[in-house]
Amino acid sequence: MTHNPWIWVSAILTLGIFSFLYKENPFYRVCEHLFIGISNGYSITFVWHRVLMPTLINPVAHGEKLWLILIAIIGAFYFMYFIPQISWLVRIPIAIVLGYGAGASIPRGIDAAIVQQLRATIITRSTFLSVYNGIWSIVILFGVIATISYFFFSRERKGILKPLSYTGIVFIMIGFGASFGYTVMARVSLLIGRLTFLLRDWLGIIH
């Protein structure tokens, strides 16, 4: 068993969170609140030292980029959220960030998620340079059309739409099944990580 006090702290906190499996208890609640407290303290540290200091405070203190003071005032409008009479001012920094983000995403999103994906779905002569590639590309094209048809609610499902949308369900179920299989892997991985820590680093049972 280790003599490193920090490993003991980590192990006790790990057990504290695990104790939730039995039922919610004070030990778990302390750990839960510690988690939020530390993560916020950590965030404050880096925002101050590595963002505000080099980008705002140092240049302004050296008399450079004085217009940044105006931006800082706009940023400080976030504080107004806590003053009900002028809380609407918080909308100004939010509008700037949200508007830019939305605007930047439109042309690039069309290119990345629609044009490039459509291009990869369309079958051309080069698709058949390899036979298997050609066959699987046809399956993908068919699967994409079938999946989209399942979400097409503007018309009643009859005629060709009925079998097509049903095939869509088949593809979707395979997709969800694959996702579930991988989700199991993800959750188990996290558990293995923590148990390995307890058995190896803390208890020293394995080397």
């Binding site: 939305a102 069309i110 998620a113 629609i114 990869a120 593809f171 979707i172 395979i174 997709g175 969800f176």
Partner: peptide, 26 residues
């Protein structure tokens, strides 16, 4: 192959929805 087809089909819908939301915000 099959999972990619399903994810891509759904991805088109998600992308269009996201774009529409962005446009509505602007």
């Amino acid at each position: 192959v099959p999972s990619t087809a399903a994810k891509r089909g759904m991805g088109f819908g998600i992308a269009l929805g996201g774009l529409a939301t962005s446009l509505k915000i602007i």
